[in-house]
Amino acid sequence: MVIEFKSKPSILANGAVAGPLEKKSVFYSYFDSIVEDERWNEKTNEQGHSTMILDACDIVMKKANIKNLDVDFFLSGDLVNQMTPSNFAARELAISFIGLFSACATSVSSVIIASLLTELGASQLAIAGAASQHNAIEKQFRYPNYYGAKKPATAQWTVTAAGYALVGKHNPEYPSIVAATVGKVVDYGDTNPFHMGGAMAPAAYDTIVAHLKKRNQKFQDYDLIMTGDLGKIGLKILKAMFAQAGVTPEELQLLRDAGAEFYGEDQAFQAGASGAGCSAAVYFSYIIQQLKSGRFKRVLLCATGALLSPLSFQQGESIPCTAHAIELTME
């Protein structure tokens, strides 16, 4: 389902924070702050996760020179059970809050909801975004952090990062959200939790095709189409899908993936980065800055999410995936 925003809500401020390991990220210099302790000096990983979200929101509010009372809505999500890190951060922020779960696509789905609230006139200022903390997610979805299991080359590394954006009324000096696509849930029967890119690629394909079709656009209409966390192999698969559909290699150069690029060519991270914080931190730092600087005029951000749980996987269910997209422009 494609939504076109007549009021063109703008992203008035953005903030991205990351953990110590993310110094290895190629996007490192775009992040607002790096914290040396992956637990944000808290006792548990989950508390650290929550503090990280607060940290990112504080940066957003500081940049916009506002206080939490000025913000109407807080829309956030993460991957921990029942999204407690977001819930606890919302408790501290004391802003009207809706928790969202679209797995790693939450970075975009939250901005879509914020834009809708803005368009509706219900919200003057809303903070939207997502976060993930490696240890907490690894523990929940895979093995204990110190368990020595061989992960295949298709495995991805959950990042410790948070990215948040302040969505408000249209302002020509800032990047604006002109359209969005809420993705369907696509399931091609993949069951391997160490090959998320392969499971998510069809969802990204589905959403991008739907968006371009409804908006009557082509690849060349964009400076960049960036998916969330397909990883190196997932991105290759997505490109192959588009190539089969007749997209030329030159056009495919416009297609990039935040997860595939996040850690550069470092082999230790296998197929690249993943996690709700991966797309959020890249979108709400690097992409927004590139838009503001005028290097990009129009971008399509398509965050992908694998909607599985350890339980569903163990019960033999396949991995349903979704992808949400927003189209950002800079005048």
């Binding site: 298709t154 192999i233 899908m241």
Partner: peptide, 11 residues
């Protein structure tokens, strides 16, 4: 079709 494609590309 997708499974085939995925298998081709996955190392």
């Amino acid at each position: 079709q997708y499974k085939n494609l995925e298998q081709q590309i996955t190392p």
